[in-house]
Design a protein around this nucleic acid. Structure first.
Length: 595
DNA sequence: GCGGGCCGGGG
DNA sequence: GTGTACGGCCCGC
Protein backbone atom coordinates (compact mmCIF):
# COMPACT_ATOMS: atom_id res chain seq x y z
CA UNK A 1 0.00 0.00 0.00
CA UNK A 2 1.21 3.41 -0.95
CA UNK A 3 -0.01 6.97 -0.39
CA UNK A 4 -0.14 9.25 -3.39
CA UNK A 5 -1.12 12.85 -3.93
CA UNK A 6 -2.52 14.06 -7.19
CA UNK A 7 -4.41 16.88 -8.80
CA UNK A 8 -7.84 15.50 -9.64
CA UNK A 9 -8.34 16.48 -13.29
CA UNK A 10 -11.33 14.42 -14.32
CA UNK A 11 -13.55 11.49 -13.38
CA UNK A 12 -15.71 8.91 -15.12
CA UNK A 13 -16.68 5.28 -14.70
CA UNK A 14 -16.29 2.10 -16.69
CA UNK A 15 -18.13 -1.21 -16.41
CA UNK A 16 -16.28 -4.42 -15.46
CA UNK A 17 -18.45 -7.49 -15.24
CA UNK A 18 -21.71 -6.21 -13.79
CA UNK A 19 -20.00 -3.55 -11.67
CA UNK A 20 -19.19 0.11 -12.15
CA UNK A 21 -15.59 1.15 -11.52
CA UNK A 22 -14.96 4.85 -10.90
CA UNK A 23 -11.84 6.18 -12.63
CA UNK A 24 -10.13 9.24 -11.17
CA UNK A 25 -7.77 10.93 -13.62
CA UNK A 26 -4.98 12.83 -12.02
CA UNK A 27 -1.51 14.25 -12.22
CA UNK A 28 1.06 13.39 -9.58
CA UNK A 29 2.82 16.45 -8.16
CA UNK A 30 1.19 19.73 -8.92
CA UNK A 31 3.91 21.38 -11.01
CA UNK A 32 2.61 20.28 -14.39
CA UNK A 33 5.57 17.88 -14.84
CA UNK A 34 4.49 14.80 -12.87
CA UNK A 35 3.14 11.55 -14.24
CA UNK A 36 -0.41 11.01 -15.31
CA UNK A 37 -2.22 8.64 -13.01
CA UNK A 38 -5.53 6.81 -13.03
CA UNK A 39 -6.99 5.58 -9.73
CA UNK A 40 -9.74 2.96 -9.83
CA UNK A 41 -12.41 2.70 -7.13
CA UNK A 42 -14.64 -0.42 -7.06
CA UNK A 43 -16.35 0.45 -3.84
CA UNK A 44 -19.07 2.93 -4.72
CA UNK A 45 -22.66 2.06 -5.46
CA UNK A 46 -25.51 4.10 -6.94
CA UNK A 47 -28.61 4.87 -4.88
CA UNK A 48 -31.81 6.92 -4.84
CA UNK A 49 -34.24 7.99 -2.12
CA UNK A 50 -37.84 6.84 -1.95
CA UNK A 51 -40.46 8.97 -0.21
CA UNK A 52 -43.00 6.37 1.03
CA UNK A 53 -46.67 6.65 1.91
CA UNK A 54 -46.32 3.95 4.56
CA UNK A 55 -42.73 3.10 5.30
CA UNK A 56 -43.11 -0.59 6.20
CA UNK A 57 -45.54 -1.41 3.40
CA UNK A 58 -43.36 0.45 0.92
CA UNK A 59 -40.35 -1.52 2.15
CA UNK A 60 -42.23 -4.76 1.49
CA UNK A 61 -43.15 -3.73 -2.04
CA UNK A 62 -39.52 -2.82 -2.72
CA UNK A 63 -38.33 -6.17 -1.34
CA UNK A 64 -39.92 -7.89 -4.35
CA UNK A 65 -37.73 -5.96 -6.78
CA UNK A 66 -34.39 -7.67 -6.11
CA UNK A 67 -32.46 -4.55 -5.07
CA UNK A 68 -29.01 -4.50 -3.45
CA UNK A 69 -30.07 -2.77 -0.26
CA UNK A 70 -33.07 -0.95 1.22
CA UNK A 71 -32.36 1.16 4.24
CA UNK A 72 -34.45 3.46 6.41
CA UNK A 73 -32.86 6.92 6.65
CA UNK A 74 -33.75 10.17 8.39
CA UNK A 75 -33.33 13.14 6.04
CA UNK A 76 -34.58 16.71 5.76
CA UNK A 77 -36.96 17.75 3.01
CA UNK A 78 -37.03 21.55 2.70
CA UNK A 79 -36.00 21.74 6.34
CA UNK A 80 -38.54 19.23 7.66
CA UNK A 81 -37.27 15.93 9.08
CA UNK A 82 -38.69 12.92 7.26
CA UNK A 83 -38.05 9.24 6.88
CA UNK A 84 -36.95 8.03 3.47
CA UNK A 85 -35.94 4.67 2.12
CA UNK A 86 -32.48 4.73 0.61
CA UNK A 87 -32.44 2.20 -2.22
CA UNK A 88 -29.05 0.98 -3.45
CA UNK A 89 -28.41 -0.49 -6.89
CA UNK A 90 -25.61 -2.56 -8.31
CA UNK A 91 -24.91 -0.50 -11.42
CA UNK A 92 -25.72 3.10 -12.43
CA UNK A 93 -27.59 1.80 -15.48
CA UNK A 94 -29.99 -0.02 -13.14
CA UNK A 95 -31.31 3.32 -11.95
CA UNK A 96 -33.02 4.41 -15.19
CA UNK A 97 -34.09 0.76 -15.73
CA UNK A 98 -35.78 0.37 -12.34
CA UNK A 99 -36.83 3.84 -11.26
CA UNK A 100 -40.08 3.89 -13.25
CA UNK A 101 -41.06 0.55 -11.71
CA UNK A 102 -40.31 1.95 -8.25
CA UNK A 103 -42.15 5.21 -8.90
CA UNK A 104 -45.23 3.26 -9.97
CA UNK A 105 -45.48 1.24 -6.72
CA UNK A 106 -48.65 2.15 -4.85
CA UNK A 107 -46.75 2.88 -1.61
CA UNK A 108 -44.29 5.24 -3.30
CA UNK A 109 -45.15 8.92 -3.07
CA UNK A 110 -42.10 10.13 -4.92
CA UNK A 111 -38.57 9.10 -5.88
CA UNK A 112 -35.74 11.55 -5.26
CA UNK A 113 -32.15 12.06 -6.45
CA UNK A 114 -32.72 9.59 -9.26
CA UNK A 115 -31.12 11.73 -11.96
CA UNK A 116 -27.71 12.54 -10.50
CA UNK A 117 -24.95 11.17 -12.74
CA UNK A 118 -22.84 8.54 -11.02
CA UNK A 119 -19.51 10.40 -11.17
CA UNK A 120 -21.13 13.56 -9.78
CA UNK A 121 -22.67 11.55 -6.94
CA UNK A 122 -19.21 10.15 -6.21
CA UNK A 123 -17.55 13.58 -5.97
CA UNK A 124 -20.33 14.90 -3.71
CA UNK A 125 -20.46 11.90 -1.39
CA UNK A 126 -16.66 11.63 -1.05
CA UNK A 127 -16.30 15.40 -0.50
CA UNK A 128 -13.83 15.66 -3.40
CA UNK A 129 -13.16 18.73 -5.52
CA UNK A 130 -11.80 18.56 -9.08
CA UNK A 131 -8.73 20.67 -9.92
CA UNK A 132 -7.61 20.41 -6.31
CA UNK A 133 -5.27 17.90 -4.73
CA UNK A 134 -6.44 14.63 -3.26
CA UNK A 135 -4.59 12.06 -1.19
CA UNK A 136 -5.21 8.39 -1.98
CA UNK A 137 -4.13 5.08 -0.51
CA UNK A 138 -3.48 2.84 -3.47
CA UNK A 139 -1.92 -0.36 -4.71
CA UNK A 140 -0.95 -1.38 -8.21
CA UNK A 141 -4.00 -2.34 -10.24
CA UNK A 142 -4.20 -5.76 -11.85
CA UNK A 143 -3.72 -5.20 -15.59
CA UNK A 144 -6.84 -7.10 -16.69
CA UNK A 145 -9.09 -4.51 -15.03
CA UNK A 146 -7.97 -1.41 -16.82
CA UNK A 147 -5.31 -2.19 -19.33
CA UNK A 148 -3.72 0.72 -21.08
CA UNK A 149 -0.77 0.68 -23.48
CA UNK A 150 2.57 0.38 -21.59
CA UNK A 151 4.37 3.10 -23.52
CA UNK A 152 1.94 5.83 -22.50
CA UNK A 153 3.58 6.43 -19.15
CA UNK A 154 0.35 6.65 -17.17
CA UNK A 155 0.28 4.64 -13.95
CA UNK A 156 -2.91 2.77 -13.13
CA UNK A 157 -3.58 2.25 -9.42
CA UNK A 158 -6.38 0.76 -7.40
CA UNK A 159 -7.87 2.47 -4.36
CA UNK A 160 -7.06 0.33 -1.33
CA UNK A 161 -7.96 2.67 1.51
CA UNK A 162 -8.92 6.29 2.08
CA UNK A 163 -9.49 8.97 -0.52
CA UNK A 164 -9.66 12.54 0.73
CA UNK A 165 -9.02 16.16 -0.18
CA UNK A 166 -5.40 17.07 0.56
CA UNK A 167 -4.80 20.77 0.13
CA UNK A 168 -6.50 23.61 -1.60
CA UNK A 169 -3.32 25.10 -3.02
CA UNK A 170 -3.65 26.35 -6.54
CA UNK A 171 -2.03 23.67 -8.73
CA UNK A 172 0.28 24.71 -11.57
CA UNK A 173 -1.31 23.28 -14.67
CA UNK A 174 0.03 22.79 -18.16
CA UNK A 175 -2.26 24.38 -20.72
CA UNK A 176 -1.92 23.68 -24.43
CA UNK A 177 -3.93 25.45 -27.09
CA UNK A 178 -4.56 24.33 -30.62
CA UNK A 179 -5.86 25.83 -33.82
CA UNK A 180 -6.13 24.40 -37.33
CA UNK A 181 -6.16 25.99 -40.76
CA UNK A 182 -8.10 24.30 -43.53
CA UNK A 183 -7.98 24.61 -47.31
CA UNK A 184 -11.29 26.15 -48.32
CA UNK A 185 -11.74 27.18 -51.95
CA UNK A 186 -15.53 26.70 -51.55
CA UNK A 187 -16.10 28.95 -48.54
CA UNK A 188 -16.68 26.98 -45.34
CA UNK A 189 -14.56 23.83 -45.57
CA UNK A 190 -16.01 20.37 -45.89
CA UNK A 191 -14.06 17.58 -44.19
CA UNK A 192 -14.74 15.13 -47.04
CA UNK A 193 -12.76 17.17 -49.56
CA UNK A 194 -10.79 19.91 -47.86
CA UNK A 195 -7.54 18.98 -46.09
CA UNK A 196 -6.09 20.46 -42.94
CA UNK A 197 -3.12 22.56 -44.03
CA UNK A 198 -1.73 23.66 -40.66
CA UNK A 199 -2.00 22.63 -37.03
CA UNK A 200 -0.78 25.25 -34.57
CA UNK A 201 0.09 24.52 -30.96
CA UNK A 202 1.05 26.82 -28.14
CA UNK A 203 1.42 26.25 -24.40
CA UNK A 204 1.88 28.20 -21.20
CA UNK A 205 5.20 26.34 -20.82
CA UNK A 206 6.71 27.92 -23.91
CA UNK A 207 5.69 25.64 -26.79
CA UNK A 208 5.13 27.44 -30.08
CA UNK A 209 4.74 25.30 -33.16
CA UNK A 210 3.03 25.14 -36.53
CA UNK A 211 2.96 21.73 -38.21
CA UNK A 212 2.57 21.95 -41.96
CA UNK A 213 3.89 20.75 -45.32
CA UNK A 214 5.24 24.25 -45.94
CA UNK A 215 8.99 24.69 -46.41
CA UNK A 216 9.80 27.76 -44.42
CA UNK A 217 12.75 29.29 -42.58
CA UNK A 218 10.47 30.44 -39.76
CA UNK A 219 11.73 28.76 -36.57
CA UNK A 220 8.31 27.72 -35.25
CA UNK A 221 7.47 25.76 -38.40
CA UNK A 222 7.79 21.98 -38.33
CA UNK A 223 7.71 20.39 -41.75
CA UNK A 224 5.90 17.13 -42.53
CA UNK A 225 5.38 15.33 -45.85
CA UNK A 226 1.62 15.19 -45.90
CA UNK A 227 -1.60 15.67 -43.95
CA UNK A 228 -1.47 12.16 -42.47
CA UNK A 229 1.94 12.87 -40.96
CA UNK A 230 0.65 16.20 -39.73
CA UNK A 231 -2.03 14.44 -37.70
CA UNK A 232 0.43 11.82 -36.45
CA UNK A 233 2.81 14.53 -35.26
CA UNK A 234 -0.11 16.28 -33.58
CA UNK A 235 -0.88 13.12 -31.60
CA UNK A 236 2.81 12.60 -30.76
CA UNK A 237 3.25 16.17 -29.51
CA UNK A 238 0.19 15.93 -27.27
CA UNK A 239 1.64 12.73 -25.76
CA UNK A 240 5.08 14.35 -25.32
CA UNK A 241 3.84 17.60 -23.87
CA UNK A 242 1.25 15.75 -21.77
CA UNK A 243 -0.88 18.83 -21.00
CA UNK A 244 -3.51 18.91 -18.25
CA UNK A 245 -5.76 21.28 -20.13
CA UNK A 246 -6.43 21.55 -23.87
CA UNK A 247 -7.98 24.75 -25.13
CA UNK A 248 -9.25 26.04 -28.42
CA UNK A 249 -11.66 28.58 -29.80
CA UNK A 250 -14.89 27.00 -30.99
CA UNK A 251 -12.94 23.76 -30.80
CA UNK A 252 -16.01 21.82 -29.59
CA UNK A 253 -17.72 22.54 -32.88
CA UNK A 254 -14.95 23.08 -35.38
CA UNK A 255 -11.32 22.09 -34.72
CA UNK A 256 -11.86 18.76 -32.96
CA UNK A 257 -14.73 17.53 -35.17
CA UNK A 258 -12.64 18.44 -38.22
CA UNK A 259 -9.57 16.67 -36.84
CA UNK A 260 -11.72 13.61 -36.11
CA UNK A 261 -13.16 13.53 -39.65
CA UNK A 262 -9.81 13.97 -41.39
CA UNK A 263 -8.14 11.43 -39.10
CA UNK A 264 -10.86 8.91 -39.98
CA UNK A 265 -10.31 9.47 -43.71
CA UNK A 266 -6.51 9.22 -43.40
CA UNK A 267 -6.66 6.33 -40.93
CA UNK A 268 -4.77 8.04 -38.10
CA UNK A 269 -5.60 6.85 -34.56
CA UNK A 270 -6.15 9.90 -32.33
CA UNK A 271 -4.88 8.36 -29.11
CA UNK A 272 -4.50 11.55 -27.11
CA UNK A 273 -6.17 10.46 -23.84
CA UNK A 274 -3.92 9.67 -20.85
CA UNK A 275 -5.42 6.15 -20.92
CA UNK A 276 -4.52 5.82 -24.60
CA UNK A 277 -8.12 6.32 -25.68
CA UNK A 278 -9.05 8.41 -28.66
CA UNK A 279 -10.86 11.69 -28.96
CA UNK A 280 -14.57 11.40 -28.11
CA UNK A 281 -17.62 13.56 -28.51
CA UNK A 282 -20.52 14.09 -26.19
CA UNK A 283 -23.91 15.26 -27.30
CA UNK A 284 -25.00 18.13 -25.11
CA UNK A 285 -28.29 19.16 -26.64
CA UNK A 286 -27.66 21.50 -29.51
CA UNK A 287 -23.89 21.53 -29.17
CA UNK A 288 -21.22 18.87 -29.15
CA UNK A 289 -18.42 18.73 -26.65
CA UNK A 290 -15.02 17.26 -27.55
CA UNK A 291 -13.68 15.00 -24.83
CA UNK A 292 -10.13 13.78 -24.20
CA UNK A 293 -9.87 11.33 -21.30
CA UNK A 294 -7.49 12.39 -18.55
CA UNK A 295 -7.09 15.91 -19.90
CA UNK A 296 -9.64 18.64 -19.76
CA UNK A 297 -10.68 20.16 -23.05
CA UNK A 298 -12.14 23.64 -22.63
CA UNK A 299 -13.65 25.63 -25.47
CA UNK A 300 -12.93 29.27 -24.67
CA UNK A 301 -15.70 30.49 -26.95
CA UNK A 302 -18.28 29.31 -24.41
CA UNK A 303 -16.37 30.91 -21.54
CA UNK A 304 -16.11 34.24 -23.33
CA UNK A 305 -19.82 34.28 -24.06
CA UNK A 306 -20.46 33.75 -20.39
CA UNK A 307 -18.10 36.35 -18.97
CA UNK A 308 -18.03 39.15 -21.54
CA UNK A 309 -20.91 41.21 -22.77
CA UNK A 310 -20.12 41.85 -26.44
CA UNK A 311 -21.95 42.28 -29.73
CA UNK A 312 -19.82 39.58 -31.36
CA UNK A 313 -17.52 36.87 -30.02
CA UNK A 314 -14.98 36.36 -32.77
CA UNK A 315 -11.46 35.62 -31.59
CA UNK A 316 -10.38 39.04 -32.89
CA UNK A 317 -13.17 40.86 -31.05
CA UNK A 318 -12.51 39.05 -27.78
CA UNK A 319 -8.76 39.63 -28.05
CA UNK A 320 -9.31 43.34 -28.61
CA UNK A 321 -11.58 43.53 -25.60
CA UNK A 322 -9.18 41.76 -23.24
CA UNK A 323 -5.84 43.17 -24.40
CA UNK A 324 -6.83 46.38 -26.17
CA UNK A 325 -4.76 45.22 -29.16
CA UNK A 326 -5.77 44.53 -32.75
CA UNK A 327 -4.90 41.00 -33.84
CA UNK A 328 -3.69 40.51 -37.42
CA UNK A 329 -6.57 38.84 -39.22
CA UNK A 330 -6.92 36.99 -42.51
CA UNK A 331 -10.54 36.89 -43.72
CA UNK A 332 -11.75 33.31 -43.57
CA UNK A 333 -12.70 32.98 -47.22
CA UNK A 334 -9.23 34.11 -48.36
CA UNK A 335 -7.25 31.45 -46.49
CA UNK A 336 -6.97 29.22 -49.56
CA UNK A 337 -5.58 32.15 -51.59
CA UNK A 338 -2.86 32.73 -48.99
CA UNK A 339 -2.08 29.01 -49.09
CA UNK A 340 -1.86 28.91 -52.90
CA UNK A 341 0.49 31.90 -52.91
CA UNK A 342 4.08 30.76 -52.59
CA UNK A 343 5.61 33.97 -51.30
CA UNK A 344 4.85 36.51 -48.62
CA UNK A 345 1.16 35.64 -48.34
CA UNK A 346 1.98 32.07 -47.36
CA UNK A 347 4.41 33.35 -44.74
CA UNK A 348 1.65 35.63 -43.44
CA UNK A 349 -0.64 32.62 -43.15
CA UNK A 350 1.99 30.75 -41.09
CA UNK A 351 2.34 33.69 -38.74
CA UNK A 352 -1.40 34.16 -38.53
CA UNK A 353 -1.92 30.51 -37.68
CA UNK A 354 0.60 30.62 -34.83
CA UNK A 355 -0.80 33.96 -33.67
CA UNK A 356 -4.25 32.43 -33.28
CA UNK A 357 -2.93 29.62 -31.09
CA UNK A 358 -0.87 32.06 -29.02
CA UNK A 359 -3.86 34.38 -28.66
CA UNK A 360 -5.94 31.45 -27.40
CA UNK A 361 -3.24 30.64 -24.82
CA UNK A 362 -3.17 34.28 -23.70
CA UNK A 363 -6.96 34.44 -23.41
CA UNK A 364 -6.90 31.11 -21.58
CA UNK A 365 -4.31 32.28 -19.05
CA UNK A 366 -6.49 35.30 -18.32
CA UNK A 367 -9.90 33.63 -18.27
CA UNK A 368 -9.34 30.08 -17.05
CA UNK A 369 -8.45 30.91 -13.41
CA UNK A 370 -12.00 32.10 -12.67
CA UNK A 371 -13.59 28.96 -14.10
CA UNK A 372 -11.00 26.86 -12.25
CA UNK A 373 -11.99 28.54 -9.01
CA UNK A 374 -15.69 28.01 -9.74
CA UNK A 375 -14.87 24.34 -10.37
CA UNK A 376 -13.21 24.09 -6.97
CA UNK A 377 -16.22 25.69 -5.30
CA UNK A 378 -19.01 24.02 -7.27
CA UNK A 379 -17.18 20.69 -6.97
CA UNK A 380 -18.01 19.24 -10.38
CA UNK A 381 -15.54 18.41 -13.17
CA UNK A 382 -13.85 21.35 -14.89
CA UNK A 383 -15.01 19.98 -18.24
CA UNK A 384 -18.64 20.19 -17.05
CA UNK A 385 -18.40 23.50 -15.18
CA UNK A 386 -16.78 25.14 -18.23
CA UNK A 387 -19.90 24.20 -20.22
CA UNK A 388 -22.57 24.89 -17.58
CA UNK A 389 -24.80 27.95 -17.55
CA UNK A 390 -24.30 29.90 -14.30
CA UNK A 391 -27.68 28.70 -13.08
CA UNK A 392 -26.49 25.10 -13.46
CA UNK A 393 -23.33 25.91 -11.54
CA UNK A 394 -25.46 27.28 -8.71
CA UNK A 395 -27.67 24.22 -8.78
CA UNK A 396 -24.78 21.76 -8.49
CA UNK A 397 -23.27 23.84 -5.71
CA UNK A 398 -26.61 23.69 -3.87
CA UNK A 399 -26.89 19.93 -4.48
CA UNK A 400 -23.51 19.45 -2.79
CA UNK A 401 -24.53 21.67 0.11
CA UNK A 402 -27.84 19.83 0.43
CA UNK A 403 -25.94 16.56 0.81
CA UNK A 404 -23.67 18.08 3.47
CA UNK A 405 -26.71 19.22 5.43
CA UNK A 406 -28.70 15.99 5.12
CA UNK A 407 -31.26 17.61 2.81
CA UNK A 408 -32.85 15.54 0.07
CA UNK A 409 -32.54 17.44 -3.21
CA UNK A 410 -35.79 18.57 -4.90
CA UNK A 411 -36.59 16.91 -8.23
CA UNK A 412 -36.19 18.60 -11.57
CA UNK A 413 -39.55 19.85 -12.86
CA UNK A 414 -41.59 17.42 -14.94
CA UNK A 415 -42.35 18.59 -18.45
CA UNK A 416 -45.83 19.77 -17.39
CA UNK A 417 -44.40 21.64 -14.39
CA UNK A 418 -41.83 23.13 -16.72
CA UNK A 419 -44.34 24.39 -19.26
CA UNK A 420 -46.42 25.76 -16.39
CA UNK A 421 -43.45 27.66 -15.06
CA UNK A 422 -42.38 29.05 -18.44
CA UNK A 423 -44.51 32.02 -19.37
CA UNK A 424 -44.57 33.13 -15.73
CA UNK A 425 -41.98 35.70 -14.79
CA UNK A 426 -41.05 37.50 -11.61
CA UNK A 427 -41.46 41.28 -11.68
CA UNK A 428 -38.12 42.93 -12.44
CA UNK A 429 -36.06 45.57 -10.73
CA UNK A 430 -37.08 49.22 -10.59
CA UNK A 431 -36.09 51.23 -13.65
CA UNK A 432 -36.50 54.99 -13.85
CA UNK A 433 -36.41 56.35 -17.40
CA UNK A 434 -33.45 58.69 -17.79
CA UNK A 435 -34.08 62.42 -17.61
CA UNK A 436 -33.18 63.70 -21.11
CA UNK A 437 -30.22 66.00 -21.41
CA UNK A 438 -26.53 66.26 -20.65
CA UNK A 439 -25.94 66.07 -16.91
CA UNK A 440 -22.86 67.31 -15.11
CA UNK A 441 -21.53 66.44 -11.66
CA UNK A 442 -23.17 63.03 -11.67
CA UNK A 443 -23.05 60.91 -8.54
CA UNK A 444 -23.78 57.21 -8.46
CA UNK A 445 -25.34 55.35 -5.57
CA UNK A 446 -25.54 51.59 -5.54
CA UNK A 447 -26.21 48.72 -3.22
CA UNK A 448 -23.49 46.19 -2.71
CA UNK A 449 -24.94 42.73 -3.60
CA UNK A 450 -28.54 43.93 -3.30
CA UNK A 451 -30.33 40.66 -4.03
CA UNK A 452 -28.02 38.41 -2.00
CA UNK A 453 -28.40 40.84 0.92
CA UNK A 454 -32.18 40.73 0.68
CA UNK A 455 -32.21 36.93 0.55
CA UNK A 456 -30.15 36.83 3.74
CA UNK A 457 -31.80 39.66 5.69
CA UNK A 458 -35.36 38.57 4.81
CA UNK A 459 -34.53 34.85 4.98
CA UNK A 460 -36.05 34.29 1.51
CA UNK A 461 -36.04 30.54 0.89
CA UNK A 462 -38.46 27.79 -0.24
CA UNK A 463 -38.24 26.24 3.24
CA UNK A 464 -39.14 29.48 5.10
CA UNK A 465 -41.99 30.56 2.79
CA UNK A 466 -45.30 30.14 4.66
CA UNK A 467 -48.99 30.76 3.94
CA UNK A 468 -49.79 32.12 7.35
CA UNK A 469 -47.76 33.38 10.26
CA UNK A 470 -47.76 35.82 13.18
CA UNK A 471 -46.55 39.13 11.72
CA UNK A 472 -43.85 39.41 14.40
CA UNK A 473 -42.40 36.01 13.46
CA UNK A 474 -41.96 36.65 9.73
CA UNK A 475 -40.70 39.07 7.10
CA UNK A 476 -43.49 40.26 4.80
CA UNK A 477 -42.61 41.51 1.30
CA UNK A 478 -43.83 45.02 0.34
CA UNK A 479 -45.69 43.86 -2.78
CA UNK A 480 -47.37 40.47 -2.92
CA UNK A 481 -47.22 40.16 0.87
CA UNK A 482 -45.13 36.98 0.78
CA UNK A 483 -44.25 35.72 4.25
CA UNK A 484 -40.90 34.22 5.26
CA UNK A 485 -40.19 32.88 8.74
CA UNK A 486 -37.47 34.77 10.61
CA UNK A 487 -36.25 31.52 12.18
CA UNK A 488 -34.62 29.13 11.44
CA UNK A 489 -32.19 30.32 8.75
CA UNK A 490 -33.36 29.01 5.36
CA UNK A 491 -31.32 26.66 3.17
CA UNK A 492 -30.42 29.17 0.44
CA UNK A 493 -29.94 32.21 2.77
CA UNK A 494 -27.57 30.27 5.02
CA UNK A 495 -25.49 29.19 2.02
CA UNK A 496 -25.33 32.71 0.58
CA UNK A 497 -24.36 33.90 4.06
CA UNK A 498 -21.45 31.45 4.13
CA UNK A 499 -20.36 32.50 0.64
CA UNK A 500 -20.35 36.20 1.55
CA UNK A 501 -18.51 35.56 4.84
CA UNK A 502 -15.90 33.50 3.02
CA UNK A 503 -15.57 36.30 0.48
CA UNK A 504 -14.97 38.87 3.21
CA UNK A 505 -12.31 36.57 4.70
CA UNK A 506 -10.54 36.24 1.33
CA UNK A 507 -10.69 39.99 0.70
CA UNK A 508 -9.10 40.63 4.11
CA UNK A 509 -6.36 38.09 3.35
CA UNK A 510 -5.87 39.75 -0.01
CA UNK A 511 -5.37 43.17 1.57
CA UNK A 512 -2.93 41.77 4.12
CA UNK A 513 -0.92 39.75 1.58
CA UNK A 514 2.47 41.10 0.49
CA UNK A 515 2.85 38.57 -2.33
CA UNK A 516 1.49 39.78 -5.68
CA UNK A 517 0.93 36.27 -7.00
CA UNK A 518 -1.00 35.32 -3.87
CA UNK A 519 -3.03 38.54 -4.08
CA UNK A 520 -4.01 37.65 -7.64
CA UNK A 521 -5.15 34.17 -6.66
CA UNK A 522 -7.15 35.44 -3.70
CA UNK A 523 -8.73 38.02 -5.96
CA UNK A 524 -9.89 35.38 -8.42
CA UNK A 525 -11.26 33.30 -5.56
CA UNK A 526 -13.29 36.16 -4.11
CA UNK A 527 -14.55 37.08 -7.62
CA UNK A 528 -15.75 33.50 -8.10
CA UNK A 529 -17.66 33.64 -4.80
CA UNK A 530 -19.21 36.96 -5.79
CA UNK A 531 -20.38 35.50 -9.10
CA UNK A 532 -21.91 32.54 -7.33
CA UNK A 533 -23.71 34.67 -4.72
CA UNK A 534 -25.05 37.04 -7.35
CA UNK A 535 -26.43 34.30 -9.57
CA UNK A 536 -28.10 32.53 -6.67
CA UNK A 537 -31.12 34.83 -6.85
CA UNK A 538 -31.70 33.44 -10.35
CA UNK A 539 -32.48 29.89 -9.18
CA UNK A 540 -35.81 31.08 -7.82
CA UNK A 541 -36.97 32.46 -11.17
CA UNK A 542 -35.54 30.01 -13.74
CA UNK A 543 -38.15 27.48 -14.75
CA UNK A 544 -35.85 24.47 -15.04
CA UNK A 545 -34.49 24.63 -11.52
CA UNK A 546 -34.89 22.38 -8.57
CA UNK A 547 -35.26 25.20 -6.05
CA UNK A 548 -37.56 27.24 -8.33
CA UNK A 549 -40.06 29.31 -6.37
CA UNK A 550 -41.63 32.28 -8.16
CA UNK A 551 -42.85 33.72 -4.84
CA UNK A 552 -39.25 34.00 -3.66
CA UNK A 553 -38.11 35.69 -6.89
CA UNK A 554 -41.07 38.06 -6.72
CA UNK A 555 -40.49 38.94 -3.09
CA UNK A 556 -36.78 39.65 -3.67
CA UNK A 557 -37.38 42.10 -6.50
CA UNK A 558 -40.25 43.70 -4.54
CA UNK A 559 -37.91 44.41 -1.62
CA UNK A 560 -35.29 45.59 -4.12
CA UNK A 561 -37.64 48.13 -5.69
CA UNK A 562 -38.72 49.26 -2.24
CA UNK A 563 -35.14 49.84 -1.06
CA UNK A 564 -34.00 51.75 -4.10
CA UNK A 565 -37.09 53.96 -4.19
CA UNK A 566 -36.75 54.79 -0.49
CA UNK A 567 -33.06 55.56 -0.96
CA UNK A 568 -33.84 57.87 -3.88
CA UNK A 569 -36.39 59.78 -1.80
CA UNK A 570 -33.85 60.14 0.99
CA UNK A 571 -31.09 61.24 -1.38
CA UNK A 572 -33.35 63.89 -2.84
CA UNK A 573 -33.80 65.40 0.64
CA UNK A 574 -30.03 65.90 0.71
CA UNK A 575 -30.01 67.61 -2.69
CA UNK A 576 -29.25 64.65 -4.97
CA UNK A 577 -31.80 64.65 -7.79
CA UNK A 578 -32.04 61.19 -9.44
CA UNK A 579 -31.78 61.24 -13.26
CA UNK A 580 -31.71 57.51 -13.92
CA UNK A 581 -32.11 54.32 -11.91
CA UNK A 582 -31.80 50.62 -12.65
CA UNK A 583 -32.40 47.77 -10.19
CA UNK A 584 -29.65 48.24 -7.63
CA UNK A 585 -28.31 51.73 -8.24
CA UNK A 586 -29.15 55.23 -9.42
CA UNK A 587 -27.44 58.29 -10.90
CA UNK A 588 -28.17 61.72 -9.46
CA UNK A 589 -27.13 65.32 -9.98
CA UNK A 590 -26.36 67.50 -7.00
CA UNK A 591 -28.46 70.62 -6.78
CA UNK A 592 -27.74 72.78 -3.75
CA UNK A 593 -30.94 74.78 -4.25
CA UNK A 594 -33.10 71.84 -3.23
CA UNK A 595 -31.89 71.68 0.37
C1' DG B 1 -47.69 40.81 -29.52
C1' DC B 2 -47.00 36.18 -30.50
C1' DG B 3 -44.69 31.76 -31.78
C1' DG B 4 -41.58 29.37 -34.74
C1' DG B 5 -37.14 29.18 -36.86
C1' DC B 6 -32.42 30.20 -37.19
C1' DC B 7 -27.95 31.36 -35.61
C1' DG B 8 -23.80 31.85 -32.97
C1' DG B 9 -18.15 30.52 -33.42
C1' DG B 10 -14.90 28.17 -36.80
C1' DG B 11 -12.22 28.23 -42.39
C1' DG C 1 -24.82 8.05 -19.55
C1' DT C 2 -28.87 8.04 -12.60
C1' DG C 3 -27.77 12.70 -19.50
C1' DT C 4 -31.49 15.22 -24.61
C1' DA C 5 -30.04 21.46 -22.45
C1' DC C 6 -29.50 28.21 -24.67
C1' DG C 7 -30.94 32.89 -25.55
C1' DG C 8 -31.40 36.61 -28.69
C1' DC C 9 -33.13 38.23 -32.96
C1' DC C 10 -35.82 38.13 -37.12
C1' DC C 11 -39.79 37.04 -39.66
C1' DG C 12 -44.44 36.33 -40.81
C1' DC C 13 -48.91 36.47 -39.21
Amino acid sequence: MEIKRMVLLDIDYITRGDKAVVRLFGREKSDGEGNSIIVLDYGFKPYIYVDPHNLEQCHEQLDDLDLVQIEKVEMKDLGKCKEFLKVTFNHPQDVPKLRDKIRDLSQVKEIREHDIPFYRRYLIDKGLFPMAEVEVEVKKASPEICSIPEDIGTSVMELSGQIQPFSSDFPDLKILSLDIEVYNPQGMPNAEDDPIIMISLSSNHGLRKVISTVESPLDFMERVENEKQMLERFVAIIEEENPDILIGYNSDNFDFPYIRDRAAILDVPLTIGTDGSSLKFMKRGFANAALVKGRVHVDLYLIMRRYLQLDRYTLERVYLELFDEEKYDIPGDEIHQYWDDCGSKLEKLCNYSLDDAVAVTKIGEKMIPLTLELTRIVGQPFFDVARMATGQQVEWYLIRKAHEQGEVVPNKPSSSQYSNRRGKRAAGGYVKDPVKGLHENIVYFDFRSLYPSIIISKNVSPDTLVDECNPEDCHISPEGGYMFLKEPAGFVPSIIGNILNERVRLKTLMKESKDDEEKKILNVQQEALKRLANSMYGVYGYSRFRWYRLECADAITAWGRDYIKKTMVKAEKFGFKPVYADTDGFYAVYDENIT
